[in-house]
Design a protein around this nucleic acid. Structure first.
Length: 265
DNA sequence: ATGGCCAATATGATTGGA
């Protein structure tokens, strides 16, 4: 079973790239972020034609998450628990029946948090604390679980081209990093780091200032695995070639392969 | 963080992104 995450920066702008990438990568489950459209505007028919079931949690203009799956959904639940007043479309959970039992996937778009002095950063930190509570609850189920998405968190200096330049940024501040590590310390495994400790495994390059040709990237898109998922991990990939396509997203897809049999398409 | 960006929005500047 291949599980992927991709911040597409508008699913409607990226539809052609998305269907081409689905055909090439052949993921079984895909978590999308920044779909940037309401549920009725989501290009559901085109993605179903590519062989995927679709679950969406969108809003007008901003944010928006979706899960695409070759297998049928058992349950689909929007919204991260812990704040009924939070109306931003940033979280969607789904579960699936597999040969390994129930597999749970959480698709998340964690707040950016800039500027770090102000309500946006407060919202980010509260969101991360809510995510940690959610993760601890779900880990207690002892199921294969994957938290996949744009975490807007740079874990270590090896995950950013110029750590000093990012020292004061909401993506790299200690308050953000320590909350990312609270997730791994709770028992979740960073899939990319389970297979490599190399620097420069970036997933995002800004549109501005020649960031892509200069390889000025950061690693902020992550797949975090419960022990029951991590024990089945057989491979990971970062599809950085997608950043060089026409009209790219500023993020590229990241995926993990788990040794869980999926019926052939 | 920035040599010059990108997406959405009653399309003209503004907001948000990272």
């Amino acid at each position: 079973m291949r599980i992927a995450t991709w911040n597409v920066n508008s699913v409607r702008q990226r539809l052609e790239s998305l269907t081409a990438w689905l055909a090439a990568c052949a993921p079984d489950i895909v978590c999308l972020q920044e779909t940037k459209c309401t549920d009725d505007a989501f290009p559901r028919a085109e993605i179903e034609a590519a062989g995927y079931n679709v679950a969406v949690h969108g809003q007008k203009t901003f944010n928006g998450v979706a899960i695409l799956a070759r297998l049928p959904f058992d349950d689909v639940t929007p919204r991260l628990p812990g704040d009924d007043a939070d109306t931003q479309a940033r979280f969607l959970e789904a579960s699936f029946s597999t040969a390994a039992g129930s597999v749970r996937i959480a698709c998340l778009y964690l707040p950016n948090g800039n500027p770090p002095q102000g309500d946006k950063f407060v919202y980010k930190i509260k969101w991360m604390d809510r995510l940690a509570r959610y993760a601890r609850e779900r880990l207690a189920l002892e199921e294969p679980l994957v938290l996949a998405g744009d975490f807007n968190a740079i874990p270590t200096p090896d995950d950013v081209y110029d750590p000093a330049a990012w020292a004061g940024d909401a993506l790299f501040l200690p308050a953000t990093r320590e909350r990312f590590f609270a997730l791994t310390h709770a028992g979740l495994t960073d899939a990319v780091r389970a297979s490599s400790d190399a620097a420069g495994l970036y997933t995002f390059w800004d549109y501005q200032a020649g960031a892509w040709p200069k390889n000025n990237g950061i690693r902020i898109d992550h797949l975090l695995l419960s022990p029951q998922a991590a024990d089945r991990l057989t491979g990971v990939g970062i599809d950085r070639h997608v950043r060089a396509w026409e009209h790219p997203s500023d993020h590229v897809p990241v995926w993990a392969d788990l040794a869980i049999e999926v019926p052939a398409r």
